[in-house]
């Protein structure tokens, strides 16, 4: 699936929920099913600042594509991470660097999560972008 198609799919998935709590239920499920993050990589190098909750992110490059793994101690954040990973993992650095990450706002996550949380999300996106830009 192309990056654009994947984003569209997530926007459509979210469109069915007009209740906030249903959106959260969905994110919680996503968070719970996120692939486990290697414990030994939960170091300060992998910790993303700006979150009230803690977020760890790790990137690996294989065959010219970036693969992300991440974790958080808070489950809703973990759900959001899971979304981002499903969109950006397995893409080329050029694809990711060229993306505007606008879909996060489109599904209402940036505005409606708590300000500290939104900042965490912003930091996470910034980190993904930076990794992509550094190829």
């Amino acid at each position: 699936m192309t990056l654009e198609d994947k984003k569209q799919e997530i926007i459509e998935d979210f469109a069915i929920y007009d209740e906030w709590l249903d959106k959260y239920e969905y994110l919680i499920e996503l968070g719970k099913s996120l692939e486990p993050f290697p414990e030994e990589k939960k170091t300060d190098d992998h910790l993303i600042k700006g979150c009230q909750s803690r977020v760890w992110l790790d990137a690996e490059k294989k065959d010219g594509r970036l693969w992300f793994k991440a974790d958080s101690d808070a489950i809703i954040t973990k759900g959001i991470i899971s979304l981002l990973i499903s969109v950006y993992s397995g893409r080329t650095p050029e694809e990711i660097a060229a993306d505007d990450f606008g879909f996060v706002a489109e599904i209402g996550l940036k505005e409606n999560l708590s300000p500290t949380r939104a900042n965490g999300l912003v930091s996470m996106i910034d980190t993904i972008k930076k990794i992509a830009e550094n190829g």
Partner: peptide, 20 residues
Amino acid sequence: VHHEDLALILDKMGIATRSG
């Protein structure tokens, strides 16, 4: 359960709490 998750969900139920 993480305190921030609780605060986020309670917020959507109309309840202002403090977490952290």
